[in-house]
Design a protein around this nucleic acid. Structure first.
Lengths: 180, 180
DNA sequence: TATTGTTATACTCTATAACTATA
DNA sequence: TATAGTTATAGAGTATAACAATA
């Protein structure tokens, strides 16, 4: 599965102090732990948490939008009117959560719900003019912060990381998306 | 900041269908959006969500441990007895959250709190024997799942990704850790 | 006065399941 | 009977602020 020569020993210099302590601890215990795998997974979570906090504080909080509310506006902006179950899948939230978020966005006049006449069980959501105006103005500011983050890396690093992250999502999603 | 030649045009073939739709949408709107930055940030979040769900379902849920409870046990395992404010920082949770998690872990006999005699405002936490037994048995199983994920990538990809993620954390953390 | 940990409140999100209205 | 969306409940987490004990 892994090509030969893929796994040289851990380079302690590149690690944070915390990570060095972990290596020492695991070595002392003689446990068969793959530190590279540990470091990869834990840094994905650390980076996601730091990124989300940053974007919320700098872009979303001033507009009184939650992370999910922003994502919903963004998805509707890109794809237009959409059935709510697809919207929930795209925004990566449970359908119950989406109901509540849509209630809020509808009350604020940013989104409108509509019942399908062909199959009256279905409900679609779409941006109002006000919603479109908001996301059109807001997204470039969101993206500007994303760019600040991306500039911490080289273009080569960015491409390899984005590819790798897509690979993780593809590799785990099939078993994880049984039901939302 | 960015070295020259870092930013060739987006390679549409590498993208998911959703990402291709996004590129088309942004192009149609003529907005100055950096798609690579967008793809990087959104895939960090997607990967983190999928990873967490996977690890919870396969390793943590059967032991009735929340993500944070597991992290607390892990941190105490590696660093030993610890003042709770450092424990909260290391586990990346608010201090109010930690109080509740420690209550639960203490009731289950996995962790013990102790008040410092030198400065009686301070409280430390440490693993009980039972807690140490649990995390010593559980962590290798957690790490085995981490390895399954890591094997989706080449060793070169893993190293570059882990490095890049550390860079993001370092680049944003100073402004984000004002208060927890 | 400032700091540590605890507690309380309001909010966001999750998972699960019951419920309704349609099909 | 099955499906889509809504609603309800319990749990995990956040931010914020008040609080008691201690320094």
């Amino acid at each position: 599965m892994t090509s030969p020569g893929d796994d040289p020993p851990v380079h302690l210099d590149d690690l944070t102090q915390a990570e060095r302590d972990i290596v020492t601890h695991l070595r002392d215990h003689g446990l068969a732990i793959d530190f590279d795998a540990l470091a990869l997974v834990s840094n994905v979570h650390r980076a996601a948490a730091v990124l989300r906090r940053h974007l919320e504080q700098h872009v979303l909080d001033p507009e009184r939008l939650s992370w999910t509310a922003f994502t919903v506006l963004w998805v509707l902006w890109v794809w237009g009117e959409m059935e709510t179950r697809h919207l929930a899948a795209e925004a990566n939230v449970a359908k119950g959560t989406l109901s509540g978020v849509l209630d809020t966005l509808e009350q604020r006049g940013l989104v409108a719900r509509r019942r399908r006449t062909s199959d009256r069980r279905l409900v679609t959501a779409q941006l109002t003019d006000e919603g479109r105006t908001l996301i059109t103005a807001l997204f470039p500011r969101f993206n500007a912060e994303e760019q600040r983050v991306a500039r911490l890396l080289t273009g080569r690093q960015r491409r390899i990381m984005t590819d790798g992250l897509r690979g993780i999502v593809r590799g785990l999603a099939p078993s994880a998306d049984d039901e939302r």
